[in-house]
Simulated scan of single mutants.
Amino acid sequence: MNSPDQSRLGKPVTYADRYDASLLYPLARGPKRDELGLAGALPFFGADLWTAFELSWLNRRGKPQVAIGQFTIPCETPNIIESKSLKLYLGSFNSEPFDSADQVRDRIRADLSEAVWRGASAPGTVGVRLLLPELFDREPLHELDGLSLDRLDIECADYTPAPHLLRAAQDEQPVEETLTSNLLKSNCLVTGQPDWGSVQIRYTGPQIEQGGLLRYLVSFRNHNEFHEQCVERLFMDIWRRCKPTKLAVYARYTRRGGLDINPLRTSHPMALPANVRTARQ
């Protein structure tokens, strides 16, 4: 089993000058889910929405081509892809000739699918979409919809995950709310480099005390974990502590190395959000 400390994160690397699928480095989701007490059927649905802004290859005449890549990794996959390995993998396309953008898309889909589903008894596929330059000006910016928790004037003292801060009015009528914050920050599990994000929490159920929820989100500030793992921790803490009947947690993280990762975890089947970046992305 691959481990984070054996990856290329934080280590000098030589960039490949030709296409190389072996650069992808899958990491099992299982160990971190074990920490959260998740065994058997997952209590959530969702996916990890990646955007690759540094994607290029050569056409058959040697002329460089560029695109923006959007990848959808289902949360049911047994593995995630370590992000630096994805950057190195995509970089290996830079000097490789392909017949068309469709061929590039199909190659990426096959390679990512093999890596994230590796070890599964019934492997599936990932979603891959390439946006070519003629579509770039159609890509909008939009902040996450909802009531901003950041308006609250609170005092913060916890900077590692503090689920005890979460409270909900269990003896009152249920509500339906969408809450957001731009104050989510955690750190890379391996390098400790900061990961900045915005988060949207949609729920139905006992009303969550907003000051405590914001303090809880801030408490991730010194926490070391990958994006996907942080969002699953957020989901499970809110699910267990506040006991909503429905819950969706969606985070959009700022890019690093030309990649952003935007995980969604939801208690119920729902359409994936449009992969629309925020201003900080």
Rank of each mutant, 00 (worst) to 15 (best):
A41C: 14
R29Q: 05
L38M: 11
G46A: 05
L42E: 12
L55N: 05
P26N: 04
P26W: 02
N59V: 10
L24N: 01
G30V: 13
L24V: 01
R33G: 11
Y19Q: 04
R18V: 08
G30M: 14
A47H: 05
W50N: 02
W57G: 02
Y19R: 03
A28W: 12
F44C: 03
E35D: 14
R18K: 13
L36C: 14
A47R: 09
L36G: 10
A28S: 12
Y19P: 03
A47Q: 03
A41S: 14
P43N: 07
S22W: 00
A47M: 02
D48P: 04
R18S: 11
G37A: 01
E54F: 03
A47L: 09
G37I: 09
A52H: 07
A21Y: 06
E35C: 12
F45C: 14
P31M: 10
D48S: 04
T51C: 12
D34F: 14
Y19I: 00
S22G: 11
A39C: 14
N59G: 05
D48Q: 04
A41M: 15
A28H: 13
L49Y: 09
A47I: 06
R18C: 09
G40Q: 08
L23Y: 05
W57R: 01
F53P: 05
L23G: 01
L55Q: 03
L36T: 11
L36S: 14
L36Q: 13
P43G: 00
G30S: 14
G37L: 07
Y19W: 08
K32I: 14
A41N: 15
P31Y: 08
R33T: 12
D34C: 15
T51E: 10
W50T: 03
